[in-house]
């Protein structure tokens, strides 16, 4: 087995909540939002690892920690064996950012509206000192645009982002992330704002570039169907923890954790017969506030299988349920 490209160990990110004057005076302990609360995973070369969950589960926070946009409260992130949290000087961080790039959800706001497409793509080259002359940089930019099928590039470099369609803009964003030849890409909901017909095109493109450029992806999404299509491995997050993890197909076809089952039951599918049924979702209530995480298993208040005296008291551990398929549930295999 090859060494993992990215390895995340006991990663934690807590955000403090500001105390009011009264709370501070009365010596009320500081409260925190536990956005990411001790997660482990690794991603091997040219694999796509999907982080799936509802809003507020900590999946985007994890992405931002990997990008070093935030510093973790605890734990480590290793890229090709090197501990990323140790990088301190500006040079080290710049060097790291060259290897790790990000694709954002919203192609409308991820680009400076006053930059032409040429400037959008030239900026990373200038920052990292790639291409000595303008002619050299222009060649790199044209190549990058051709790679994402924005052709002919000469027609597009002079345009502003608002003159492109959503799909074209997302392709420029992909070109921008690949122009530095990174080893690792964090894609945070890259297709969720696009129309279905364009969504497929972007996913196909990202898949193709994975082979061509030998990049590894962290794919952050709330959409199980695209995760199955695009990802090799997947982890389900709930309130800052990974509750289930394994090969994408295994997790979807044989879900063990009650939360994964509920999520899967909620996914709409293009099967018209389903309109006849009003199905009960195997889940109760709504996601609690991350500042107020329930004791024991954090999913227990919403779980339909909850066992009193066990699930509401004891924190479950992530165990290997079957080869390569990890679950964090006291009742794994019994329900």
């Amino acid at each position: 087995m090859s060494e993992p490209v990215l390895k995340v160990e006991k990663l934690k990110k807590y955000f403090p909540i500001k105390r009011g004057l009264f709370e501070a005076l009365t010596g009320h302990p500081e409260r925190v939002v536990r956005a990411v609360d001790g997660i482990n995973f690794e991603i091997r070369k040219q694999e796509v690892f999907a982080l799936v969950g509802e809003s507020g589960c900590g999946k985007s926070t994890t992405g931002k920690l990997i990008m070093k946009l935030w510093e973790p409260t605890d734990g480590s992130i290793y890229l090709e064996g090197q501990d990323v949290t140790e990088l301190k000087t500006q040079e080290e961080i710049r060097d790291y950012r060259r290897k790790v790039q990000m694709i954002f959800q919203d192609p409308f706001s991820s680009m400076n509206p006053r930059f032409r497409i040429y400037d959008v793509l030239e900026e990373p080259l200038l920052i990292h000192g790639i291409g000595e002359t303008r002619a050299e940089r222009e060649e790199i930019i044209h190549k990058a645009l051709e790679m994402v099928r924005i052709t002919p590039p000469e027609d597009y470099v002079g345009r502003f982002p608002h003159q492109l369609s959503g799909g074209q803009r997302q392709r420029v964003a992909i070109a921008r992330s690949l122009i530095l030849n990174p080893t690792f890409i964090v894609a945070d909901e890259p297709v969720s704002m696009l129309d279905v017909s364009i969504r497929a095109e972007i996913l196909e493109l990202m898949k193709e570039l994975k082979e061509k450029m030998s990049v590894t992806y962290l794919y952050i999404t709330h959409d199980m169907s695209t995760a199955r299509y695009f990802a090799d491995y997947m982890a389900i997050m709930y309130l800052g923890r990974i509750v289930e993890m394994g090969p994408a197909k295994v997790v979807i076809d044989n879900p063990i954790h009650p939360y994964t089952r509920a999520l899967l039951a909620a996914v709409p599918e293009p099967i018209p017969e389903r309109r006849e049924i009003i199905k009960e979702l195997p889940i109760k209530g709504e996601v609690p506030n991350a500042a107020n995480i329930p004791p024991g298993c954090r999913f227990h208040p919403r779980c339909i299988y909850m066992e009193k005296g066990l699930c509401d008291v004891k924190h479950p551990q992530l165990i290997e349920y079957e080869h390569g398929h990890w679950v964090e549930c006291h009742l794994a295999g019994k329900i």
């Binding site: 279905v196 497929a200 599918e269």
Partner: peptide, 12 residues
């Protein structure tokens, strides 16, 4: 163009 949850799709 729709990815399916319980089917393998080679190419969308």
């Amino acid at each position: 163009a729709i990815p399916r949850l319980h089917e393998d799709v080679e190419r969308l």
